[in-house]
Write a protein that binds this DNA or RNA. Structure first.
Length: 257
DNA sequence: ATGGTTGCTTAGCAA
């Protein structure tokens, strides 16, 4: 089973790239973030014609997450349960092939100490609560998405420049450790223990052109699933060429039982 | 070099 996650930064702007990527890589599951469109304007038909079922938690202009899957999706959940504080579309989950798949877009946080950063911390608290209640040890679960956290020094091309940013600071590294402690494994991190693998390059700072990347998109798998991970990586090629997303697709292959 | 880009929506915000 090939599982992938990709922050497309607008599905309408990225539709041709997405369509090509689906047909060339044939993932069984693709989690999307920042689709930036309401459900009524989502390109359902075209994606179904490409052979995928789709579940979308859409939003106008900002955010928006989705799950594409070849298999049938059940138990779809949009947003955290009994979610009082969050009006932003950043969480969707569904069961596919017996695996609970979660597609998330964690808030960026702007600047440490800002209102946005506080929101990021509250959101991560909700995520941890959801995962605690998911009884990770009793079934396969996979958490995919733009976590807006680079967990290790090797996940940042220029760690000195980024230290203290909302993406890379001790508090965020601790948040990531807490997520793993709930029973998840960092599939890409395990595949590349020496780091040097990035998934996002800033448009503004010409990050890709300057080799200034960070690994902030992740595929976290429950332990039982993680031991069946045969390979994982980032499709860096997708960041090249005309009008790419600022994020590249991240993928992990699992042995099917 | 304290800049630079992109997307949505339409001048300002978010990343």
């Amino acid at each position: 089973m090939l599982v992938a996650t990709w922050n497309v930064n607008s599905i309408r702007a990225r539709y041709e790239r997405l369509s090509r990527w689906l047909s060339s890589h044939q993932p069984d599951v693709l989690c999307l973030q920042e689709v930036k469109v309401e459900e009524k304007a989502f390109p359902f038909e075209a994606i179904r014609e490409a052979g995928y079922n789709v579940e979308v938690f859409g939003q106008r202009t900002y955010n928006g997450v989705a799950i594409l899957a070849k298999g049938e999706m059940t138990e779809v959940q949009k947003g955290f349960p009994k979610d009082a504080f969050d009006d932003q579309a950043r969480f969707i989950a569904a069961k596919v092939n017996g695996v609970r798949v979660v597609s998330i877009y964690v808030p960026n946080g702007k600047v440490v100490g800002s209102e946005s950063y506080e929101y990021k911390l509250r959101w991560l608290f909700q995520l941890k609560r959801f995962l605690e209640e998911s009884e990770i040890s009793s079934g396969d679960i996979i958490v995919c998405g733009d976590l807006n956290i680079a967990p290790n020094p090797g996940d940042v091309a220029r760690p000195q420049q980024w230290e203290g940013s909302v993406l890379y600071n001790p508090e965020m590294r601790s948040e990531f450790t807490e997520l793993l402690a709930l029973g998840l494994a960092d599939t890409i991190g395990k595949r590349f223990p020496d780091g040097g693998i990035y998934s996002w390059w800033d448009y503004q700072q010409l990050g890709f052109q300057l080799g200034n990347g960070l690994r902030i998109d992740h595929i976290l798998a429950s332990r039982g699933l993680a031991v069946r991970c045969t390979d994982a990586g980032v499709d860096r090629e997708e960041r090249k060429g005309k009008l790419p997303s600022d994020h590249a697709p991240v993928w992990a292959m699992f042995e099917t039982t």
